[in-house]
Design a binder for these strands. Sequence first.
DNA 1: ACAAAATAAATGAATGTTCATTCATTTATT
DNA 2: AATAAATGAATGAACATTCATTTATTTTGT
Lengths: 191, 191
Amino acid sequence: MIRNKRNAILKSVLKLVNRQGFYHLNMKSIAQEAGVAAGTIYLYFKGKEDLINALYAMIAEEFNQAILEAYEEERALQANFFAMLDAAVMFYLKNPDHFSFVEQYTYAPFLFKENQDMNFSLLLPIYKMMAQGKTLRLIKPLDESVLLALIHGSLNTIIKLHLARKTNLRKESTRKEFYNAVWEAVTVTKK
Amino acid sequence: MIRNKRNAILKSVLKLVNRQGFYHLNMKSIAQEAGVAAGTIYLYFKGKEDLINALYAMIAEEFNQAILEAYEEERALQANFFAMLDAAVMFYLKNPDHFSFVEQYTYAPFLFKENQDMNFSLLLPIYKMMAQGKTLRLIKPLDESVLLALIHGSLNTIIKLHLARKTNLRKESTRKEFYNAVWEAVTVTKK
DNA sequence: ACAAAATAAATGAATGTTCATTCATTTATT
DNA sequence: AATAAATGAATGAACATTCATTTATTTTGT
């Protein structure tokens, strides 16, 4: 029961941030949406900031888990790369609110103390694989940051485009096309 | 003279957004920073929202101009692609505040009415070139959005990484490596 | 060229609203 | 009966915007 109310509050925040944005988020409506009194929020969270940080932590954990579940030791690097990218994409397709929240959280770095690395760290498992791939001479010997830019950056943008209905990641062919493009961007070209 | 004060106000907003973020931006401190009275802002702008939108418009214009200046009709597609990407990167290296502002603006879509396409439209000249490249069978026949993701997304992320001191785009070699990687990602592979 | 009058620009204290947080009181659980 | 959980009205701080007043600039008349 104790978890229920806490969860309901976090869920409200997610919904409201998605609907009206960080700017218009206020405690009264969070409480209303969650079906509790305003004061109740303070039984579970120190304040607004704490609430936001807790939600981010929750989402980051869920996301990480989804990605890690896609990884299978015995599979080839390419297969795992595709599987993990796909897990990331599918996670956000299933939870568009999560994406919107993470974006807004990441770009309001002054409001909360958390460092800016966090958002990048969401794809940590993938970067580890990349390092491995470099030693196998499968992945281009690119600067870490360039790899990060190619993978993380394009992933973020394609999701955003999907949510803006500029593309449709529900179609498997679109997803495949994207994964392939990223793969080709980071792997050594065979001549 | 009339432009001076208006400009001073816009400059203050830029500085303050960069220093304390959208969240803590308030009219009093904008006025203070610009060396004018609070009421004066309302002589030049309808209100806070108008102020923010005006600043975005100004930055977008400057940015567009910088990119377009890099384009030269008679040059090959690859040369222009590199030149324009470089113009975009150099613009933000020279104006880190502009980048930070655009990021925050883009990810607070609920605060302002502007549509989310705007940020993508900043690279419009590049996408036009891509369309041209596709007909020449130089650029991969990828979905528009996938191209957008590869170029826009990775550009954004690499700038962010530079500003977070995770990479150093002041080194020409790093920039070149990045441009090459993006170029290879979008061009047809020769076997 | 000068002053007076008219117009424009700028000021910043006052206003009213929004909103996070508190806490005395009530309701539920042990 | 004792303890824990929840409530929501009250508080006070923050802050965007207004507007009566002041200051600067321009125009007009002599």
